[in-house]
Design a binder for these strands. Sequence first.
RNA 1: GCGCCUCUAGCUCAAUUUGGCAGAGCAACGGACUCUUAAUCCGCAGGUUCUGGGUUCGAGUCCCAGGGGGCGCACCA
Length: 528
Amino acid sequence: MAHLARAAPAVRAQHPARRTRRREPTGGFLVSHIDEAPYRYEAGDSAQTVAADPRFADLAPGAGSGVQASVAGRVMRLRSQGKVTFAELRDWTGAIQLFADESRTPEYRRFEALSLGDWVGACGEVVRTRRGELSVRVESWSLLARARRDFGDKWRGVRDIETRHRQREVDLWANEGVRDTFLLRSQVLSALRRELEGRGFVEVETPILHPIASGAHARPFVTHYNALHADFYLRIAIELYLKRLIVGGFERVFEIGRVFRNEGLSPRHNPEFTMLELYQAYADYRDMMELVEGVVAEVARQTKGDTVFTYQGRALDLSPPWRRATMEELVREQTGVELTLALGRDELARRAATLGVDVGEHDGAGKILQDVYEHTTEHALFQPVFVTDYPKEVSPLARDHRTRPGYVERFEAVVAGRELVNAFSELADPDEQRARFALQAEERAAGDEEAMALDEEFLRALEHGMPPTGGIGIGIDRLVMLLADKANIREVILFPALRPLGRGEMRAEDGEPGDEVGEGADEAEAAG
RNA sequence: GCGCCUCUAGCUCAAUUUGGCAGAGCAACGGACUCUUAAUCCGCAGGUUCUGGGUUCGAGUCCCAGGGGGCGCACCA
């Protein structure tokens, strides 16, 4: 409270707004017949279709094509040269130059006075300038919208990371490659759906507001449903509802959606992130491995053109089959230390300590094994690997391993040192599942706030009978990071979570035009 | 939550190691120019140096507290 009072927004707002003030040019041609801010504009061509049109490929410098084109976009470069002006117009597809000259362009002086960032629609003959640049000669034009703020340095764009993430709309225009990253993200989602549908999977949508947040180890966000006088939770996983659909007869089902976990931010964690969860009846975790490596490789092929590419300077090969190794094999490989549940809790704790891994008082053998793996080994696994056979203790939803007591049939696919996929042969026995939840309740009682909550409706569903089922969860943001070669998750999320700006800061930046005395007249006139 | 780093004009950055009048490029604004490609040239303007205290004759610079951001740790399947 104290710091809010000190922000004194009213005082700060009296200072001149920091935004770049753009005024109507005062050259004596304020009365205009140029259509400004029309309700619609029909551009028959895109920058790309004009630039790539074979009819213009051999157009000689200084020659006209006799073909009319009509384009719309933002003015991103402007070079005025007396009685001719060149403008680079950028639209979704690319860029095309506009060429205006005093003799042909209506209200040429007004065109010349455009600002960078203005939205313009223009049409005219496609010509090649004397210097060889393919251009649309402006024979009519509209000012579709004005830019009253600029996009930063013409050459270097906007470097400030905070601005880039808070004002993504600016980042998208100011910095090269940003749009491509998000376009790639869209293509990845699209390819995933295509691949899954091609394998007979059906996409569904289950609730995001959950009365009980379960299905993962995580703390939820809490919200309140007024009509029901009840607290609800934003989902931390999609799992339990999807398995109920398997019970309901959806044999191959998936959902791509946002899940929410109330935890810290990091270059690899955003509190809301996109998860793909998928369940397949009659399948086990080995089937899931084949599915994962097949689908991920295919998505890479469709979006990157290859399953081999560089990630953060290192060659990464996603071609199937991926290596399969147990957690214990990998730990031994990495540390030289033999760890197995058969050693017992105390011996495991001793060996963990020699590896510099802290062991909690309540940690069981399984938790210790997992901690050692995560602290010593996971980050070192760069090429894709299926890490298999997790301790039962840390896997309350996975089915007992068919041959190894104390373990479950679970794997994580690790790529570039990070978990990309978590999957298992699903536990289907309702009594066993209830017992697993009971163990989780004990852990919760012992202080583990992330221990999984018991979901009675899910247990009832299992009592109706769930066939053998394989299931997987894929972190979509991390998959996109890999394919887009980004080290920070915020680079692949359009609007990542950031601390909200204080009221004072917004106020100061959005000062009313009136607080600059003497300039209001120009703006008022221009509006008429 | 803890530690380290960081915050200067709309944007990108300067501001001698060791405190001495806060600058440049870009864009913006006014103007010149009939073929530009980060055009060029002339002119003009632009600042609570994140905020609040303190030390000092003097603070962008040093100290304390707070805020935003980055990275690491913790947390986190």
